[in-house]
Amino acid sequence: MAITLTEPAAERVKSFLENRGKGVGLRLGVKTMGCSGMGYVIEFVDEINADDEVFEDHGVKVIVDKKSLVYIDGTELDYTKDGLNEGFQFRNPNEEGQCGCGESFTV
């Protein structure tokens, strides 16, 4: 399995990284937090750790730690708009339920 990005998501990540001026890629992961069990992590990466898996899609390095990978393997990251709001969205096949607002999830 792997982690993939949609084209719009990849373009956004590239432009954000370029604007930031440093960073090797994008970290995706999970943290146990939130009202429904877990929350997604999405961060810039300056340094890749020894226990990280690195995927590459559309020219963007996606970095995931091994512990998180079991929860999000197969995820496709998308970039979408909802009215005025826009941002990244995890399409995670492992996800079984979300809290009302969708900020946290269960597997």
Binding site: F16, R27, I42, F44, D46, T80, G87, F88, Q89, C101
Partner: peptide
């Protein structure tokens, strides 16, 4: 929820 990228 739509997410934004955070600092490390």
């Amino acid at each position: 929820a739509l997410l934004q990228i955070n600092e490390p």
